[in-house]
Amino acid sequence: MSMDKVQIPWTDSDGKPGFWGALHSLPRRVYHSVFRSRPIPANDLERSQAVAANFFFHLHSAKVQERTLRFKTTLGLGLLSLYTFVILVVTGILLMFYYVPTPVEAYDRMLDLRGAVFFGTFLRNLHRWSAHAMVGLVFLHLMRVFLTGAHKAPREFNWMVGIVLFLLTLLLSFTGYLLPWDQLAFWAIVVGTSIASYAPVVGDELRYVLLGGDSVGAEALLRFYVLHVAVLPVVLTTLIGLHFWRIRKDGGLAKPREK
């Protein structure tokens, strides 16, 4: 912990300066400037540091209950939901390179994905099936949490965040549904948004704001596109961060009481 261990820059590990020594230690310096632990931790202290000192791992505690790792405890559904979202972000960004959100161009771009873009069909397929999978997996995760009583105190708030995440997942899927601009997409959104107009007092206004007009047209396509690729993913990602943070703050996964 003392400061006298700090190595003076451009000396070799014996403390002697020299060009070759410096060159020799360069890879190690670069590695340890990025990672604070060795690639394969050798003892429990280093295993703890490997988790705590890594930006991507640090939302884990250094040690976890063995129980929470058993498949039966969660069926992996929360992670599966996250993974489908990650796949959707990656494939979605790649699709954005090809897609144009106008009624004139959108459908042609779908045909391009099928006929002219390398792996375009696979990209669109993977995005579409992952989206359906995410809706299902998030709902199954919601069911798992309720049926294991994991929504009860002290996890009430995280349960509510989870409900909002589920609704956002539906909205993300719904806004993406319009983008191919084929008959299936168009009429599904006509039907879906007409449900919004059944809301009392503000129903028609709500639908007007959603569509940017009285019917599904160019403005609606643009609005759904912006919601789908910018607004909703940012909100969802932020709330996912809050959701994970609260798991730790609420004491980890719900655990059975002592008998």
Partner: peptide, 23 residues
Amino acid sequence: NAPLEEPASRLHPPNPAKAPWYF
């Protein structure tokens, strides 16, 4: 393959028009 139907046309409503499956 992901479904892709005819281009959107407000003149040819399908019967029945259905929302996405989760709705």
